[in-house]
Each structure stands twice: as structure tokens, then as C-alpha cells.
């Protein structure tokens, strides 16, 4: 076949498209995160749904559901390659950067989909009132970018180990703690009766933006070493 100057982004898009096709035909990750998300949400709503809890508690419960649902599905992006033994041919043919960008974008889509389903259900089932919907949407978007940025690299690290699932959560939690703290604080303001705005959580938003940028940049630099055994 004739050689063509195919750009890095075209290759990354091909990785994303391939992962999307495989996911829509098998639904491993989608089923895992949605099942976990809906189950946890149901348990939370049954236990505290009717109680008038402070905004801090609602925000914490919301991010716990997002975090653990994400943990059950985000690692699949690399685990599936290792378990199906497709990683060998991918390593031989693809540039590590294209693989990372493709997989990161796939995980981002997965998280956005999770948030799109879980957020309205959470609001509906726990009777929490959202005072600043734009702020909540911003925090959700930045939170997803940070979560995907950090967990995609961790997924690549743990995909070759034995106890993949447990190791993924154990390694991710300390790394994601600053992100979760910032996201919970900013979400509290979005849920709060006083109805705070962006200026009230500027430091939390700065933290979320910096976290995402640092994690994605560091992962881009380190991924090549993780990917090539």
C-alpha cells in the first residue's frame, strides 16, 4: 500500500474509533460503569434520599458515586488490550502518543456519558437543589478531564499486573485525592442554598484546571516508558 503522511491526530482518532467500535459491540466498560453507578446511586437514595442533608454531604456522596463508577470501567481500555493479547500488534504498529491520546479521549467520552446519566438521576433521587447549574457543569467537565488524565496512565501501568481491579483503585485514590477534594468543594457551592458563583470557587477551579493540565502533560511524557515494557 502507498505510504501516506498520516498525522498523529488521525492515528489517535483511529485508536478512539477502534475502541468505540469494540465498546459498542461488546459493552464491557459501559456495562461496568453504568451498573456500578446506578446500583450505588440507588443505595444512596434509599438511605439518605428523603433526608435534608447539608450541601457538603450531597457533594461528597455525588463524587463518591462518580469516582467508584469510574474505577470500575476506566481501566478496561488497557486491560482489554492485554487480556485479548492485542497489545503486541498495537505496540508494534502504533505510536505510543497516538495510543495514549486515543485512549484518553475514549475514557473522557465514557466519563462524560457516566456524568450525563448519573447527574440528573442523583438530583432527582436525592432531592438536592442545584443553585448554579453552569458551575456544576464546569466542575463536572474539569473533574472528568482530571480523572481521565490520571487514570488512563494508571490503567496502562496496572494492565500487566495480576490483581488489576484492586490495584487500579489503590493506585488511583491517592493520586486523585486532590482532584476529588477540589471537585467536592466546588460542587458544594453549586448545591449550596446561598447559591455561590464562580468567584467563590476560583481557587478550586484553578486546582481542577492545573490538575488536568499537569496529569495529561506528565502522562504524555511518561506513557512511552509504561507502554513499552
Amino acid at each position: 500500500m502507498p505510504k501516506n503522511s498520516i498525522s498523529l491526530m488521525t492515528k489517535a482518532f483511529a485508536v478512539l474509533k477502534k475502541d468505540m467500535q469494540c465498546e459498542f459491540r461488546t459493552r464491557y466498560a459501559l456495562n461496568a460503569i453504568m451498573l456500578f453507578g446506578i446500583t450505588t446511586l440507588t443505595v444512596v437514595s434509599f438511605s439518605v434520599g428523603q433526608k435534608n442533608l447539608p450541601a457538603e454531604v450531597h457533594a461528597a456522596l455525588f463524587w463518591i458515586i462518580i469516582f467508584f463508577s469510574a474505577m470500575s470501567g476506566l481501566a478496561q481500555v488497557f486491560i482489554r488490550e492485554e487480556e485479548a493479547k492485542t497489545s503486541t500488534v498495537l505496540r508494534l504498529t502504533a505510536s505510543p502518543t497516538a495510543v495514549y491520546i486515543g485512549k484518553l479521549t475514549f475514557n473522557l467520552f465514557l466519563l462524560f456519558f457516566l456524568e450525563l446519566i448519573i447527574s440528573p438521576l442523583f438530583i432527582l433521587m436525592t432531592d438536592v437543589e442545584v443553585r448554579n447549574i453552569l458551575l456544576l457543569a464546569t466542575v463536572l467537565a474539569l473533574g472528568a478531564i482530571g480523572l481521565a488524565g490520571a487514570t488512563t496512565l494508571i490503567a496502562a501501568i496496572i494492565s500487566k499486573s495480576g490483581a488489576k481491579g484492586a490495584l487500579f483503585s489503590v493506585l488511583s485514590f491517592p493520586i486523585l485525592l486532590p482532584l476529588l477534594m477540589g471537585a467536592i468543594k466546588a460542587t458544594t457551592v453549586a448545591f449550596s442554598d446561598t447559591g455561590g458563583g464562580f468567584s467563590d470557587v476560583s481557587s478550586e477551579l484553578q486546582l481542577l484546571i492545573s490538575y488536568g493540565v499537569i496529569m495529561i502533560t506528565a502522562s504524555l511524557l511518561l506513557f512511552e516508558y509504561v507502554w513499552e515494557e
Partner: peptide, 20 residues
């Protein structure tokens, strides 16, 4: 990739190798 057709597999790996 089990979930992809033979043509989809070929197209994917051709793109990865920078081939038209």
C-alpha cells in the same frame, strides 16, 4: 481485534502504519 471485521482490522493497522 475480535469485535472488528477483517476489513476494519486491516484499515486500522494501515492507518497506524501511516498507509493510505
Amino acid at each position: 481485534y475480535d469485535a472488528l471485521t477483517a476489513e476494519e482490522n486491516l484499515k486500522f493497522f494501515a492507518t497506524m502504519r501511516g498507509l493510505a
